[in-house]
Nucleic acid binder design. Sequence first.
RNA 1: GGUCGCGUGGCCGAGCGGUUAGGCAGUGGUCUGCAAAACCUCGUACGGCGGUUCAAGUCCGUCCGCGACCUCCA
Length: 502
Amino acid sequence: MDLKLKIHNSLSKKKELFTPINPGFVGLYVCGPTVYGEPHLGHARPYITFDVLYRYLDHMGLKVRYVRNITDVGHLEDELAGTGEDKIAKKARLEKLEPMEVVQTYTNSFHDKMDMLNNKRPSIEPRASGHIIEQIEMVKQIIANGLAYEVNGSVYFDVMKYHEDHNYGELSGRILEDLIAGAGEERRTLEGQKEKRNSVDFALWKNASPEHIMRWPSPWGIGFPGWHLECSVMSAKYLGETFDIHGGGMDLLFPHHECEIAQAKGATGKNPVNYWMHNNMITINGKKMGKSLGNFITLSEFFSGDHKSLEQAYSPMTIRFFILQAHYRSTVDFSNEALQAAEKGYNRMVNAKNTLNKLVHPGNEKAGNENAEAAILALCERCFDHLNDDINTAQVLAELFEVSSKANAYQNKQADIAELSLSTFDKMRKIFNLMFTDILGIRDESTADQGGEKLDGVMNLVIDIRKSAREKKDWDTSDKIRDSLNELEINIKDGKEGTTWN
RNA sequence: GGUCGCGUGGCCGAGCGGUUAGGCAGUGGUCUGCAAAACCUCGUACGGCGGUUCAAGUCCGUCCGCGACCUCCA
């Protein structure tokens, strides 16, 4: 099939037509979380963004191998004292847990939250700690190529040497001379800085001090792998030395992804990634929500509403809808008002979806209104155009809102469903469901959808009783039923065609 | 300080050379026992100042404001 998907490549800073290396197959790697804390709103964004990409590629008939790692070792934490303690190890010490216990706890939580957000699980979810041998091998290769050096049991990547034949900064736009010149006073105190030939060099392998908990033997002594190595190693192992798409948050662009490129080229000489994609940040009061500022709200807190900044609980689908209403490369600012707007929009669209799926078309093969017919057909096409234009989910949702209005109008007889031909109506319904459910990955959280047959039966009975009451103008009974159901979060709507609920 | 990005109506957010984004809130209607929902209607926005162009939120310059990265971060 002819691919028309254009994606913004961070490497060229342009939208490029996506062409997979192997026709029909796509290798997709997304940087996963470091599992040392509860996942927060910021984590929702990349995984929803790339989930939609994954779903869309899949819809187009491509066989996608989606690899997303779990970082359970390796990130150094630069304490003020400069001890360079591993994040996982630090958390373990603070919580008096085994490091792997910490890892498991937060990995489980991460999985739970991702499931709730309706993100599909990746094809492979490798852990850094399970690939120590491969990481050591890659370090050896880079040393053999003369682009890394060992000092006191640690191995550093020689950026200056690499830059002689390559361009360190090709992704981030950094200029090496500026990086060296711009090294501030505060950075001089960081662990290992004095061992490096140059301040811009980064660790591939770090010597472990005796009190360091996570440690592995290596040709350079007991230690642990460096910051950026795992992604290079695991992407190469499962997707090949050069693969199609690498995604992640913009905050990872430098140094993490820049270093990945350098490591990969330093090891294999090959460009590791054809298309780099970066999602923008979620902000709170205009500032990036993240660990370092401590201004994050966890997904659990959103789902329960249990946080001082939250006026209410927000469901997983409200969060998903909220994120999808903005383009992935724009920042999106959190606020209660914005989330409440997303919640209402989401509810409106879900209700419209259910309405649409229950509509019965009279079956006319000719459109009653050629203009309406043409408009709907054009709208259907535009949904795909928007996705092809760098996954513009905001525009897709705008189109689906148009369909929602139509569906409601047909239901209420405020517009004639026969204005569309049967085939166009079917197409509209099919594409709405495809976009909403399959590609945008939005799930129906309403009671009606989850109550099952028994609830349906009960509700039919209740509505029938209420109908009798209403016919007798027994408004007390009628309103009592409505109010009581409301308390159970079941809403009654009296329409022309009878009463419905959700 | 360096590199990059952003500033759109009350709020959130698409668009990025000429045509309605959309959602939420608000206005006025229709419907309705009441309510809710729904549908229709209305608002005419693109930080300031210059410039390019027949035509500019949309391109260029400049100024102001904000942010990201340069240290772990999605």
